[in-house]
Design a protein around this nucleic acid. Structure first.
Lengths: 227, 227
DNA sequence: TCATCATTCAATAATTCAATTGAATGAATG
DNA sequence: CATTCATTCAATTGAATTATTGAATGATGA
């Protein structure tokens, strides 16, 4: 809670933005956001996933709620938290990009974690466009269905992120999966790649998203998916 | 400098991202980034603009440099700092959007600062498309010249942000100015509106940027500007 | 109503962070 | 070579955060 003293208004506003950044400045809270990006969760569920006490998790959740990152609703005995909006995801994914780009230590950890460096590198737009013709790539669109219908990459399969775990069977085997979403700052494709990798399914993400693909005058399809 | 203990790799990575967020979690540092978004600056110049001591500013700068947000070069006696990359701007502008959207207090301060609420609200894409025909709007493209040449909104004037202050005379008077840049998460248009307002020039920014305009199948021009 | 369960609050101790002060580099100029 | 000036370092103080503990809400169901 930043102090609202009699400072110039610009400074006051920056103080608020800095307050939000401080709220994001804790690994547990970033992990909570990652959880909630996939849907509503109760306090205890989050706490066990984090391996932290319920009281501690509750305080983190409330801090984020006060900062406007989360909202909560009561369902019987439980209090279900969810992200206040997609712009929370936007900040976290921009943060992730920045961290990946500039922090050498992160790259080192990642290269130790994933088998090869290529696995983690995003697919470039031109590379993808060239490989689409060959037909050995499955495109996975993680946006909500209405956005998908309004326009998507040719031949893409639409599975919104929150349904990914239950619809894994729809993914063809033995084809490389390239995930994409709203744009380079959207975290949906990051999350999807993480989910797929956790199940041993090879997947990479597109460097940017649908708007940029469009802007590059590459082919676009409209309407429902026809599998 | 987050601890790199023997934690699961995912936790280690989140720890690093959180560290970056903490570095952003201070109003002075956000203000430094705002300064450096306009170009290289020496330590003392930044310090005087912030109204802080040189020693203190130097420490903030070094903290940001260690976090990978800034880089520095020596020029004679002075050390010139600059942003390490545009992704720093991306995070700050995503943060800004989040703060503006969710923090009621920020809105209150803004409404007290600017004359009317409308002044601060971005121009929606469809609204702009409709008004382009009438010809009472000057479009201002703040991206670097090469990006402008590759494609821009019809009739737009290209003044990269770092040249804005010296090229103010090129702006026509008595027309509303709408600034745009790379996308909704790019801070260039935010900065431009701030610069213009500080000189009493009415300006608003486009809700999103060039890729989204393209994605919406709206008209696009290529090549140099022809004033 | 009472007991139960999930969540929240309040108080504490350990850690981390911010700004100040004064001294120490390190390049440029006479 | 010594001086000057911009920047950095080191040490201190005061403030803010984090995780823990145990008690207090507040809704549910017997």
């Amino acid at each position: 809670m930043p102090a609202l003293s009699s400072q110039p208004p610009k400074r006051q506003i920056l103080e608020h933005f800095a307050g939000i950044a401080r709220v994001l400045g804790h690994a547990h809270r970033l992990e909570i956001i990652e959880q909630l990006a996939q849907g509503e969760r109760a306090v205890e569920g989050i706490a066990t996933r984090l391996g932290q006490s319920v009281a501690n998790t509750s305080q983190h959740l409330q801090l984020m709620r006060r900062a406007g990152l989360l909202s909560a609703r009561r369902d019987g005995k439980r209090v279900l938290y969810r992200l206040a909006g997609t712009d929370v995801i936007d900040v976290v994914s921009a943060l992730r990009r920045l961290g990946e780009a500039h922090l050498a230590e992160v790259r080192a950890v990642m290269e130790g974690y994933f088998h090869s460096k290529d696995d983690m590198e995003p697919v470039r737009r031109d590379e993808l466009a060239a490989r689409l013709g060959a037909g050995d790539v499955t495109l996975l669109d993680l946006r909500p269905e209405d956005e998908f219908i309004a326009g998507h990459l040719p031949g893409a399969l639409n599975i919104p992120l929150d349904q990914l775990e239950v619809r894994l069977a729809e993914l063809p085997e033995n084809r490389e999966i390239v995930a994409y979403c709203r744009g380079p700052y959207c975290v949906l494709s990051f999350e999807a790649v993480a989910v797929l990798r956790a199940r041993g399914i090879g997947a990479r993400r597109l460097e940017d998203g649908f708007p940029e693909w469009c802007a590059a005058s590459l082919p676009v399809e409209h309407g429902m998916s026809t599998p």
